[in-house]
Amino acid sequence: MDVHGRELRYFVTVAEELHFTRAAERLFVSQPALSKQIRMLERTLGVSLFERDRRGVALTRAGAALLPYAQRVLAEWQTGWKAVEAVRAAQRAGLVVGMSSSPGRDGLLPAIRSRVTAEHPEAVLKIRQFSWDDSTAGLADGTSDVAFVWLPLPEPERYRWTVVAQEPRHVALPETHRLARYVTVDFADLLDEPFLALPKSAGPLRDYWLATDARAGREPVIGAEVSSSEETYEALVGGQGVCLLADGNAPLLMRGGVVTRPVPGLSPSRLAVARRADDDRQLVHAYMRAANGAAGD
């Protein structure tokens, strides 16, 4: 038996008003059109829902029995419609994609974007740059919805991620540095060098780029703290220290006066796309799927 939501809405309105003219005005339809819809519903159900006489309109026993269920169906539909509208609004608002520097990596960002918009053409993706002070690129305080981040993350239980690039670590040096003439540089030869460090607020990522796990307990010498690729470049050419970086980020610093060399033996760096663990929005999951797919291409 097929009953349309419009027929139930018309029935409930007449039942609440007990007056066809007032119900028609409330529904913004003509009274004859309303009467026709009620008759169609009665034919579908095989019972009369209203008694009509000179004194007015009253519910029949069948109408009174149907009314609470019809009201419940309409209320549930309204709740469902609001839930769908909330999803649509979230999709229209789009996602803020956080990053501390461009992901690069053979068009990774546009590849992910094209996959997301193919699945959700209405989605708006907004890129937001963050300082290296925040190693979560806005995820921690909610100013980004998904983010390109370097692992490890602070409080990893708060996040879910997919690795999109895994690259060897290099060292960036002033081109006049004593080690710049070598094809590769042993980390042992860097132990006494002053290092450029991320801010302490970067948490475990600061230790990772200082390679503290490869120092056998020796404390690193900090030449300066840096919060961006521009600051890093200026500190390098100014002779304030050296720094480790991912192979794919070498072009950010090689602008004259700086060289990079592989450092064998160090664990590879991992670039990931991450989300908050408790964020189950459809568009967030679509971005994560797209990142995983693009990384596998």
Score class of each variant (00 low, 15 high):
Val57Lys: 02
Ala89Glu: 14
Glu119Thr: 13
Leu139Lys: 02
Glu76Ala: 12
Trp132Met: 11
Glu85Lys: 12
Val57Asn: 02
Asp134Ile: 05
Ala93Ile: 05
Ser144Gln: 00
Leu125Tyr: 04
Arg92Gln: 12
Thr143Lys: 10
Leu74Lys: 04
Pro103Thr: 02
Ala86Asp: 10
Ala90Pro: 01
Pro168Leu: 09
Asp106Glu: 15
Val84Gln: 14
Asp106Trp: 11
Ser100Glu: 11
Ala147Cys: 08
Thr117Tyr: 05
Gln71Ile: 06
Ala70Ser: 00
Ala165Ile: 04
Gln129Leu: 15
Asp134Tyr: 02
Ala70Pro: 02
Glu167Tyr: 10
Leu139Pro: 03
Glu85Ser: 03
Asp134Asn: 06
Arg158Lys: 15
Arg113Trp: 15
Ala65Trp: 13
Ala140Asp: 12
Tyr159Met: 02
Trp77Gln: 14
Thr162Ser: 08
Glu157Val: 14
Ala90Glu: 03
Val149Cys: 00
Arg92Phe: 02
Thr162Gly: 07
Arg88His: 11
Leu139Ile: 07
Asp134Val: 10
Ala140Ser: 14
Gly142Asn: 10
Glu122Gly: 05
Ala90His: 02
Glu122His: 05
Ala137Ile: 06
Val97Phe: 03
Val73His: 02
Pro121Ala: 08
Gln78Phe: 04
Arg61Met: 14
Ala123Trp: 07
Thr143Phe: 11
Arg72Glu: 12
Asp141His: 07
Arg128Asp: 05
Leu74Thr: 02
Glu119Phe: 03
Met99Thr: 09
Leu153Arg: 00
Pro152Tyr: 03
Glu76Gln: 12
Leu109Asn: 01
Glu76Ser: 10
Ala93Asn: 09
Pro152Glu: 10
Ala70Met: 00
Arg113Asp: 13
